[in-house]
């Protein structure tokens, strides 16, 4: 077990980790925005919004992310004529794919607010917009946040898939170092450890948030 291979390449690997965080951050932000719109479409009573949104979600949940990455990177430029950069291709495919999961989390968060609450608000004369803002959203957000954080952790793990188009994020760099130094055991266990620590922290945060949101809920 020779740990020098890790310490010698630390700067290179750290650069990869920084890129991983960048990809994850952008994917989460953009995916969430697009996911909110999709989620609202899924909740809408308007058929023009509901059916396309549902079809989109069903489609992207039925195929692997790796296939989406291929589509965007290799195949879309063939049609549109110009080539997206690797980084952009990854961010776009993540946004499109993860949005469908965010949409479902948001939809079930909003649907988890009991209809009794809606009736209580309506009974005092509140209008739909007031209802949504003061009664539904605060409660829905408390329900959603743990799942959203959990999914952010999943996205962080998914960034390793950028490997397939050669983007030099953390895992790719580990792989390149391994190709050069052939010290697979140390390198991949190290990679595993890094991901483990970061994802564990994320999962812990989501548990803490879930615990906090339970305490101020009524025991009906």
């Amino acid at each position: 077990m020779d740990l020098n291979v890790i310490t010698e390449n630390m700067a290179y690997l750290a650069g990869g980790l920084a890129l991983t965080f960048q990809i994850a951050g952008l994917a989460i932000a953009c995916g969430l925005c697009w996911g909110i719109l999709l989620g609202m479409g899924r909740l809408s009573k308007n058929r023009l919004l509901y059916y396309p949104a549902s079809a989109y979600v069903q489609f992207f949940r039925g195929i692997p992310l790796i296939l989406v990455i291929f589509w965007i990177y290799f195949l879309l430029p063939l049609i549109t004529g110009d080539s997206l950069g690797e980084f952009l291709a990854v961010v776009v495919s993540f946004t499109l794919y993860e949005a469908s999961y965010f949409a479902e989390i948001i939809r079930s968060g909003i649907q988890s607010v009991p209809t009794g609450q809606v009736n209580a608000g309506l009974a005092t004369g509140m209008r739909p917009r007031q209802l949504a803002f003061y009664i539904i959203l605060p409660q829905a957000l408390r329900n959603m946040v743990p799942s959203l954080v959990n999914h952010a952790v999943v996205i962080f793990q998914d960034t390793s898939l950028a490997y397939v188009i050669g983007l030099r994020e953390f895992l790719r760099r580990v792989n390149l170092v391994d190709a050069r130094e052939a010290r697979s055991v140390e390198l991949y266990l190290f990679a595993g450890l890094v991901y483990f620590v970061i994802c564990s922290l994320g999962t812990l945060a989501s548990h803490k948030l879930e615990h906090r949101s339970q305490t101020c809920r009524s025991n009906l």
Binding site: V153, Q157, D158, S160, L161, Y163, L171, N175, D178, S184, V185, L187, Y188, L189, A191, G192, Y195, F196, C199, S200, T203
Partner: peptide, 23 residues
């Protein structure tokens, strides 16, 4: 559960494919 859920699947595959035989 903690180990297998907090490490990306791809990394796990690489461990089995590249690293495990070396052990």
């Amino acid at each position: 559960v903690l180990v297998f859920r907090n490490i990306p699947f791809l990394v796990q595959l690489f461990v089995w494919y590249f690293a495990a035989p070396l052990l």
